[in-house]
């Protein structure tokens, strides 16, 4: 999709095990004001991304999102700034290692 070159956009750091989908590309700048939008736009550019990351209304169990280094729980509804750095990581919660599947 066309993205205005002048506008700052969030950066998604692609997990190593998902870089096959991005031809090895590690850092992707992509438009979006919420995690949901970011994932949707990522999927437009790199098909298959959405299926790996989320279900209908939430992240896939076992996957967590960090925005600017902070773990969020609201997940796909969380808002992201134009200069946000987004990481998708294996989910961990409450002194608990969430089973990754």
């Amino acid at each position: 999709m066309p993205t205005p070159y002048f506008k700052k956009m969030p950066t998604v750091v692609i997990p190593p095990l998902m870089r096959k989908l991005t031809d090895g590309e590690e850092n992707i700048t992509i438009p979006g004001t919420t995690i949901r939008e970011v994932i949707s736009n990522l999927d437009d550019r790199y098909p298959g991304m959405k299926e790996r990351l989320c279900e209908e209304y939430r992240l896939k169990p076992g996957i967590a999102v960090y925005i600017n280094g902070l773990l969020t729980r609201g997940s796909i509804l969380d808002r992201v700034d134009t200069d946000a750095e987004i990481h998708f990581l294996p989910a961990i919660s409450g002194g608990v290692a969430a089973p990754p599947d």
């Binding site: 998902m18 790996r52 089973p99």
Partner: peptide, 21 residues
């Protein structure tokens, strides 16, 4: 074995593989 949302074909005792780089 699952690796960040991707699932292998064959059954295994390895439930998942994660990687940081």
């Amino acid at each position: 074995t699952t690796s960040m949302g991707e699932t292998a074909d064959e059954p295994s005792n390895v439930a998942s593989h994660i990687q940081h780089k």
